[in-house]
Amino acid sequence: MKNYNLTHLKELESESIYVIRELAAQFERPALLFSGGKDSIVCFHLARKAFAPAKVPFPLVHIDTGHNFEEAITFRDDLAAKYGAHLIVGSVQDSIDTGRVSEEKGYNASRNVLQTVTLLDTIENYKFDALIGGARRDEEKARAKERFFSHRDEFGQWDPKNQRPELWNIFNGKKSVGEHFRVFPISNWTEMDVWQYILQENIEIPSIYFTHERECFMRDGVIYAHTNVIPLKPTEKVEKMQVRFRTVGDISCTGAVLSKANSLEEIVEEVAATRVTERGSRIDDKRSEAAMEDRKKAGYF
């Protein structure tokens, strides 16, 4: 008999497409949370596969802290235009201007936490009942316990102690009015899987994932991009460095790595050789041992 066996990447792809189609079938107003980072780009690519030759039947939602890398924003707009996707932007600056949140102060001020309010407001304004997120279980210990279909109560909160069991591939997206779901199609992918898939499918990603020269400075062992977003301490020196970003998020909490990787092949080799986790360069996770758990409970991505 013929060998009907899928490679692991094909099996993961198939699982993710299945999850995205379940979302489209089970919810009335779904959307895809799009940050311009590689994980959400892969999710969008999978969504295109799920519904071809039709267009992706839901909008992209970007929660813009106003502190994003220009390259990521340009990439986002180009991608939406290229595939005729409807893009909705929730602005943290607007949340600040209307007094919904107030800006953190000090050298390590970040808009990362503020995003949760803007995100939940956007969900409420547009009456979204399910949002795709690109989170993976290998990223972080709170995420290791996430479901594919993750319930959020009417305040957008996650209750990790009381999650619905998820059996086989049967997803229960039932909810009461005002509640919503977060859906994570690439739950079972690792960072390496994502990069290998981007390479295999030749998926376009923002230029800041590749090596480039940039004005940077060091703080607490992390390389930061020098921008007007993060004020320099008197002792900190700006230098030109050859860097790339391993993750793409808000400038104030995304660290760069020294790298010469100039192609997807080189990035894959670099990821294979690296001995530090991807979120090791994410300052947002370093605030406390349970930083992600706390933010997720409050309604974060």
């Binding site: 692991h8 709170a142 316990k145 102690k161 041992e289 758990e293």
Partner: peptide, 28 residues
């Protein structure tokens, strides 16, 4: 080790998923 909620009670409550790969196979 899992969530803070679990550490506080000294037990693990829920299924957690872990990943590793060898040159032969990927494992969940």
């Amino acid at each position: 080790d899992g969530l803070r909620a679990e550490r506080e009670q000294g037990i693990t409550i829920d299924v957690a998923y872990r990943y590793f790969a060898t040159p032969k196979r990927k494992f969940i």
